[in-house]
């Protein structure tokens, strides 16, 4: 985070639990500044969407505070934009009628709304469907319209829950371009996503959340440096009558043999033939090999012990 940037919202010691059950979020601390993209990464049920709804002031925390200049700013327009999982619209109206309604509701003036909506319709690739009724839209088109409606009033803080779901690669790239532009113009963005390529492309800071707690946070560079530069190989083997060799090649270390064998090396994929040869010579039956280069996916696995959902 740029030390000169303006903090918009500060979350301190936030705890939240549903009335019926176990805690959903535990001691969350987060500061979001203008011109920053913060990504929330975590398995399903980790509490990412709940955190977004707390930031929207739709849920009341059990304890902790959400403060910041954004909450006391006076503006003609709504200062937050949100695109969640639901893409409910006025289905019997056209896309442009829906977009006009939500833009006007968020405070866009009547004389500005047409220009702002049609500009975004072009950017997200909805121009051809603007005058069709929403009930005839595909899932992807509805998602695009939802994102457009969250963006149209140029909010200071944009909260996005799985923004790339339902988007084709072209629309996904267009969204990345739009969000980059929002960041340049000083908007802050907090997004929960499982789309690692999208996060790697955009996120300035990443919070990995697991079971309601922030288990790791920092810039991409900081998080990835914590992984080291080692490549990991996960080798599935026939566990029956296995007797492993001691040596798998230079700079190759067997780090886990409790399930599939996990090797770590600084030699990258060049080490794979040595590992393969060592296992074959020990008469180990190889069932499959998975290469894990250092990256967000690997970070996620190591921090949460889980695979990312598809």
């Amino acid at each position: 985070m740029d030390s000169g940037s303006i903090s918009l919202i500060e979350v301190c010691g936030l705890h939240y639990r549903y009335a019926s059950g176990s805690p959903v979020l535990i001691d969350i601390n987060l500061e979001v500044s203008a011109g920053e993209i913060v990504a929330l990464l975590g398995p399903n049920g980790a509490g990412k969407s709940t955190l977004l709804r707390l930031l929207l002031n739709e849920l009341t925390p059990e304890s902790g505070t959400i403060l910041g200049p954004l909450l006391s700013m006076k503006s003609e327009r709504v200062l937050m934009g949100y695109a969640g999982e639901e893409s409910a619209h006025f289905n019997s109206l056209t896309g442009i009628q829906n977009a006009h309604f939500f833009a006007r509701a968020a405070g866009v003036e009547k004389d500005e709304v047409s220009e702002m909506v049609s500009g975004l319709m072009n950017l997200v690739g909805l121009s051809d469907e603007a005058d069709k009724v929403v009930s005839s839209y595909s899932f992807g088109a509805k998602r695009k319209l939802l994102l457009l409606e969250a963006l149209v009033h140029q909010p200071k803080l944009l909260l996005l829950d799985e923004p790339t779901v339902g988007l084709d690669p072209t629309s996904r790239d267009a969204l990345a371009h739009i969000l980059s532009k929002c960041r340049q113009e000083g908007s802050a963005i907090v997004m929960a996503s499982h789309d690692l390529n999208f996060l790697e492309q955009l996120a300035d800071r990443i919070l990995v959340i697991d079971k309601g707690r922030v288990v790791s946070s920092g810039s991409q560079a900081e998080l990835l440096s914590s992984l080291g530069t080692a490549t990991r190989f996960q080798v599935s083997v026939d566990a029956a009558a296995i007797e492993l060799p001691e040596y798998f090649g230079d700079n190759v270390e067997l780090v886990d043999d409790s399930g599939p064998l996990v090797f770590e090396t600084t030699r990258g994929q060049a080490a794979l033939p040595d590992i393969w040869a060592a296992l074959i010579s020990a008469r180990v039956k190889i069932l499959g090999v998975e290469v894990r280069e250092p990256g967000l996916a690997e970070l996620f696995r190591r921090v949460t012990g889980q695979e990312l959902p598809e």
Partner: peptide
């Protein structure tokens, strides 16, 4: 019906 679909929440959230 609109509340169940999430439309009501979206309208209020949008600023109405």
């Amino acid at each position: 019906r609109d509340a169940e679909a999430g439309l009501f929440g979206r309208i209020i959230r949008a600023g109405v």
